[in-house]
Amino acid sequence: MASIAQKRGTKPTGFRRLLSPDLKTREVIAAYIFLSPFLIFFTIFFIRATIASVGYSFLDWRLLRPSPPYIGLENYAELFNDHIWWDSVWHTFYFAIMTVLGTTIVGLAAALAVTRPVRGAGFMRVFLYIPQILSAGAMGLIWNWLLSGQFGVINYVLSFVGIRPVNWLGDPNLVIPALSLATIWWTFGFPMLIFIAGLQGIPGHLYEAAKIDGANGWQAFRYITLPLLRPTILFIMVTGVIAHFQVFGQPYLISGGGPGRSSWTAVIYLYNQAWVAFRMGYGAAVAMTIAIIMAVITAFQFLVISRRVEY
């Protein structure tokens, strides 16, 4: 049909154009048909939900109340004055920074080891990634037990190097480092694999040249590997901070947020407000604040990155 219209040299207009569209129009129609399932789902579950979340955050909405009153910024004011919230945010930062540093260092060390021409390197890549595939559920159950103060195997191992039993999950000062330790064990596999790819991208002749110039292994690492890995390291740290700031499973399962509230994280706080206390409006304000904090972190990281790249 379209070809007839084109042969005549006239373009059909209006309704007829829709019935026998030319190639360009057909492409547009096809594009929107291809896009429509995505756009429908995206509109319902993302756009609508995000806008609704902003709206909810201005309501005093407890789940059982039929018509929630508008209270303006009161939820935000309450949140800003709640020291439990700021403690939770601090725990989250503390956890995220320690975990990101830990996974980056362990991941890089493991990547350096398995990219050397040693036996079993291929097997070790596959093997060292295994913790990463565990669910938060399985990982949490195992580490809740390993870190137990009374019968925990971690304390038993430490006793061999003369460290007296430590109440990891019962000491407010140790619980976040303990959760971080478990998380480093659980998630260093991802940085390792990304670093392996980064290391393989460094041309071998650079190391040969350094060797000729008399550089030792440390110098080659310091002046070739590290600078050339910088983009990879930054990628790992930026994505790591974002991912670990949203930590929920580990405190929920390993320490139950305790002792007291000393391992409450931002998302645990959100969970407790929205699904334990059923304060949906307040919970939405918490979620919006989490989003703002994460946007600030990301912006800050990009600022640091762009400044570093300049020289």
Partner: peptide, 17 residues
């Protein structure tokens, strides 16, 4: 740009839905 928005934002409205 929406990748920047963390998943927590949509939790409550989607739960209500």
């Amino acid at each position: 740009v929406t990748i920047m928005i963390p998943g927590q934002v949509t939790l409550i409205p989607n739960y209500m839905l």
